[in-house]
């Protein structure tokens, strides 16, 4: 709006696009001919009650729940109802998702200047899987998404500050940075922790793919990389399959994985109605509501540590 010589002002909002905060549909698309959605519970990286997903195509119902077949082209609709009764509506153009993409991590020391040019000029130090950036550093994520796709980054519970660098790259800071009219107003360092981000690749025409990715800043405990997540399994582990004990935790992830035991294959996997038995357990199933916490607490699951 044109405001000539105006000192008009407004209070900032409590919600922001980069934050996975309240209940919302974080991503939507079609994968292998099936409707997929990343539903954020608003409670953390888990769901205690399953959201209700009702799918439609050009307004005609086609099914409910996860893995609904999409019968053809058109406009895919979704109505998600949270356990508390909140309703979110969403639509996307039916288009097959692109191939999965990798995300690399690197540590970068940002100075006072957080501008695009200043950050682009910095050298980043590659991080190995499970490696944490040092306290005070930021983690630079680079997504190998297809050409024509742009990455959208969201951080669980709005922790930390993601600052995009280009269409495929983001610098995630272990700080709360407050901007005012484009200038940094304040920077507050956060405690060492693991941050979880959702990386969504979109092309503007419905060909969407997303993945979850953790970054660790300042942590000292050994972390194991499991499908993009960084989990504290109690000890440093070599790559391979491990059976772990799942118990409840009172943190963002809501679960604790302990007692890792190497296993030769997936045959030791307990059959979960919510899970794909042909693969190791993916913590993203909990993030998106495919599996509930109650489905896995007390069980042993097989994780593929990279």
């Amino acid at each position: 709006m044109l405001l000539l010589l105006l000192t008009a002002c407004q209070e900032p909002f409590s919600v922001e696009r980069h934050d996975l905060g309240p209940f919302r549909v974080a991503a939507l698309g079609v994968l292998d001919g099936k409707a997929r959605a990343a539903v954020w519970s608003g409670e953390g990286l888990f769901h205690d009650e399953a959201p209700r997903l009702a799918w439609s195509l050009d307004g005609a119902p086609i099914g409910e729940g996860f893995d609904v077949e999409v019968p053809g082209p058109g406009r895919l609709g979704l109505v998600v109802t949270s356990p508390s009764g909140a309703v979110e509506t969403a639509e996307v153009t039916v288009a097959e998702a692109p191939a999965p993409f990798e995300i690399t991590r690197a540590a970068v020391s940002l100075g006072e200047d957080l501008s695009l040019d200043a950050r682009a000029a910095l050298e980043a130090r590659p991080l190995s899987p499970g490696e944490a950036a040092a306290e005070g550093e930021a983690v630079r994520l680079v997504a190998a998404a297809p050409e024509g796709h742009r990455l959208r980054w969201m951080t669980a519970q709005g922790l930390g500050t993601p600052l995009e660098l280009d269409d495929h790259t983001v610098d995630h800071l272990g700080e709360e940075v407050v901007f005012d009219d484009g200038l940094v107003e304040s920077r507050t360092a956060l405690e060492p922790q693991v941050y979880t981000l959702l990386a969504l690749a979109i092309d503007g025409a419905g060909s969407n793919r997303w993945r979850w990715i953790d970054v660790a800043i300042g942590t000292s405990a050994p972390l194991s990389a499991v499908g993009g997540h960084l989990l504290d399994l109690g000890e440093a582990l070599a790559p391979g399959l491990y059976s772990v004990q799942v118990s409840e935790a009172d943190d963002l992830r809501g679960l604790r994985f302990s007692d890792p035991q190497p296993v030769p294959d997936l045959l030791a996997e307990m059959a979960l109605p919510c899970a794909d038995p042909s693969t190791a357990f993916d913590p993203a199933w909990l993030n998106e509501g495919r599996c509930l916490r109650s489905d896995v607490i007390g069980l042993r699951l097989i994780l593929d540590v990279q």
């Binding site: 549909v25 939507l28 698309g29 509506t89 969403a90």
Partner: peptide, 9 residues
Amino acid sequence: DALYDGDSD
């Protein structure tokens, strides 16, 4: 209310 558009996020 609002509708989430998956094409443009």
